[in-house]
């Protein structure tokens, strides 16, 4: 499947891109992260501590254990600091 991946804030800076399209068969967010980390050091730096990260699937907050079935857009970012 083809996924749009978006990165925000320091995750974007460490990955060095705001968005990209990846082809993957990863069943879960955690499996997708493992694939990315194995691909390049930039991802290893961004995903060094996933407890410090949040993920959204199709613009809804989700868990790293969530399945990617039918998902089109995955976003990774640090805890939000609005207001």
């Amino acid at each position: 499947m083809s996924l749009q991946i978006l990165y925000f804030a320091w995750v974007r800076e460490r990955v060095g891109a705001a968005r990209e399209t990846v082809t993957t068969e990863a069943p879960t967010v955690a499996a997708l992260v493992a694939e990315l980390v194995a691909r390049d050091d930039r991802y290893a730096a961004a995903f060094a501590d996933t407890a410090a990260l949040r993920v959204a699937l199709d613009q809804e907050l989700a868990d790293f254990s969530a399945p990617l079935d039918g998902v089109r857009e995955v976003a990774f970012f640090p805890p939000m600091t609005g207001g």
Partner: peptide
């Protein structure tokens, strides 16, 4: 503050920092 997807970065003369 905690559930809307905004992130703040402070920029000073000596550098920049994401607000934790």
């Amino acid at each position: 503050k905690s559930r809307a997807p905004f992130w703040k970065k402070e920029v000073t003369a000596t550098g920049e920092d994401w607000v934790a």
